[in-house]
Design a protein around this nucleic acid. Structure first.
Lengths: 202, 202
DNA sequence: AGCGGATGTCAAGTTGCTTGACAACTACTC
DNA sequence: GAGTAGTTGTCAAGCAACTTGACATCCGCT
């Protein structure tokens, strides 16, 4: 059996619904996204949107989580391609920040100033982003362990380092102050210092 | 509304079923294709195969028609790219014959000599191919009219010319005797002679 | 306060795939 | 040549997913 019909159909509805929600968001902001619009965009009933995605808040979260997945793909690739841990972190951060800069969805969310309450999607990305930080942290940590097993940190210390990286990147996305490359360099610099400091004292 | 869910799901089942049938055919010949195998390959019930595609004979026809569609895509492109009618015909024929030479499905069907009765799919492609010749004829004729409206033939004569081209190509696919380019040249030569003859006598 | 629009939820209806069964046919085996 | 296994084509009942219509609730606006 190569690939079942259900598998190739699995999540198709969800993807199409999120596509619709994302399109509306990119076009006119999250505040203009209604369950009915999402439904009619792809020609299903409003009820189906609720069945598949839950509440409107769940839609926002799902949208964020899906976009997050694309960012984490970049992380995995860049970490796998790097020879050195710090290089991997720098490259991964740079890739993620570039994606954040170029993503229409991200720019629409982050650029939502004032008008309407588009900002609640942004809120999810920042304050209420527990699941995001957690998921991203898991992936980043796994990437580190997969490719650079000899990190001079305890597991708990690694958790802190990873979480810090994720939070720094998230911050640079939501409030950019410099080039992706520069920001990535900054983050890598901090982490490298932490690692050398740790090495010196251990 | 960009694209409804139903539209993006429409024909997915059919495509997956035909993919399965084609894979089995390419792997071990049409005679080994059963409705149950098609169903289990993509994880649906046998009844669903019948509902979607009809009888086993219908599956063969659908397989042939789908492959035909790919060939006709080549025709449309090559005819559109040509400056001269005869060049268009030659290029289109060459493209189709190359595709016929390279298509695993076609080679499996045509190469079905003896063992089992794989040949009944081949039969469909040749003797029982009324629908194929007809469909191909419509597309080729339309391509000719779209790009070379000034053909010195009546509508009925054009029909004959087009059908002849289709039949010649089909013959060269099922029983190749020379290069695609050479065969295409032969067909174009015949048609060109017919056209000049017609011009001289009109 | 009242109104329109949106949300979240429910129950009934429809559609499409599944399941189990059946008769008819073919190929193989003893 | 009869028996057996495998396949086909078809049917009806069952089930899961989407649709439809309805309702209470909440929020922003006049």
């Amino acid at each position: 059996m190569t690939l079942t019909y259900r598998e190739s159909q699995q999540g198709l509805l969800r993807e199409r619904l999120l596509d619709a929600a994302q399109a509306i968001t990119e076009a006119s902001g999250w505040s203009t996204v209604t369950m009915a619009k999402i439904a009619s965009t792809i020609g299903v009933s409003r009820q189906t949107v609720h069945n598949e995605l839950g509440t409107r808040h769940d839609v926002a979260l799902a949208l964020a989580m899906r976009e997050l997945g694309r960012f984490l793909d970049v992380v995995r690739v860049r970490m796998a391609d790097a020879d050195d841990l710090v290089d991997g972190i720098r490259n991964a951060c740079a890739g993620v920040l570039e994606l954040g800069r170029d993503s229409i969805l991200i720019r629409t969310i982050v650029g939502s100033v004032g008008s309407g309450n588009d900002a609640d999607l942004l809120t999810i990305l920042t304050t209420e982003s527990g699941e995001i930080v957690e998921t991203a942290g898991v992936v980043v940590k796994q990437s580190v362990l997969d490719h650079f097993g000899d990190v001079p940190l305890t597991d708990a210390e690694l958790d802190v380092a990873v979480e810090s990286i994720v939070r720094l990147v998230l911050s640079h996305i939501t409030r950019p102050s410099k080039d992706p490359a520069q920001a990535a360099g900054d983050i890598a610099w901090i982490i490298e210092l932490a690692l050398t400091g740790k090495r010196a004292t251990s």
